[in-house]
Design a protein around this nucleic acid. Sequence first.
DNA 1: GGGCAATGTTACAGACCGGTCACACCCAGT
DNA 2: ACTGGGTGTGACCGGTCTGTAACATTGCCC
Lengths: 207, 207
Amino acid sequence: METADAGPMKPRERIIKTARELFRRHGMRGIGVDAIADQAGTNKMTLYRHFGSKDDLIVACLRDVAAENDEIWADLEAAHPGNPLAQLHAWLRVGAECAVGDDRGCDMANAAVELAEHDHPARHVIEEFKKAHRDRLAKLCRDAGIVKADMLADSLWLLLEGARVSNQSVGTAGPSAHFIAIGDAMIAAYAQESTAKPEATRAAAIA
Amino acid sequence: METADAGPMKPRERIIKTARELFRRHGMRGIGVDAIADQAGTNKMTLYRHFGSKDDLIVACLRDVAAENDEIWADLEAAHPGNPLAQLHAWLRVGAECAVGDDRGCDMANAAVELAEHDHPARHVIEEFKKAHRDRLAKLCRDAGIVKADMLADSLWLLLEGARVSNQSVGTAGPSAHFIAIGDAMIAAYAQESTAKPEATRAAAIA
DNA sequence: GGGCAATGTTACAGACCGGTCACACCCAGT
DNA sequence: ACTGGGTGTGACCGGTCTGTAACATTGCCC
């Protein structure tokens, strides 16, 4: 059949790319390896030669998602070098693209829902990825001089997670539509709290 | 096998109760009707006499979830009659029970993730439920005199959705641990904004 | 051109799943 | 005691799924 992607990519890449799309559209348990191989313009045998099992393929896809996300963070820092507050606002805008322009949520979070077994090989990748994301966000908040950096990071994090999962039940026109407004309000509130009160502290530091 | 639940309940109830638990633990696509019937102390044939298909059973389970939730809202109002702000804080506590004491998230949201087909019969139930929940929350905010009631409602809603989905990737000790603190801060910020600024308005109303 | 590794093709095995059938059973209401 | 509706039992069908085996084919490098 091979409806798409007979491009110059090697089979391995095509399989991962196609699998990611089909996993996303039908769920990991809702699509078979045969359909993935077909759609990738190859066949089941070569798929199994590159990935020993479907679970291995799933793990490879999630690692691909993680790598893609690393690029986003690199872009974020490159766009506003040395300006963590601007990076924080930019992060919010990037998150908004996910939260308003897409109704199938975060691949990692979806995988965590679908792969309920606690010993699934993908769980490790998911947990590592999400913790890394949250830690990067917290570092950004800290570097931006937010006092309660962890609280703001967790607030923004839960906001994004909530928006992306909410899209799947009530659509992008639901509460997620206010994503940026809510996020900006959060940042503003914590930033104000960080500059208003501790004048005594700052004065002491100067003196 | 019938490891559990040979109680006095009629088969239909036992099946729904068991199905809900197994769906929750293994995912809807991760458990078969045969296993559900076994665990419920009955058999597949009886299951199919009560529910025409597995999808029907799924819908029935989700309706059961919705009914249980209605009770929670009734309890909330009964506990603090005529005091919407107290109900709002109580709602946050109830949400916290889900967000810190459970790592398998919201059944409805999980179903939305797992049942990716846009025409699945359960989708209607999920959407209706989630919208009703969000609307009730917005009404509570409005009744509590919050000016930007919709914004607060959406913020709290996304907070809860995020916490419950986040539990499945990073556990209850992750950002969800700050659920109540974050929620209280949100309510406080919006409540302050609702009493501080509009003194002119209130004065005008009195005069 | 020869050779070798990667890829394609077909068929198959084994398991599981949703769903149905025919028939035996139990037990309450009359 | 009878009867009838709800229930239990096991077998079965057709389909789909992951994963494998054996063999043909392509394409690249020397």
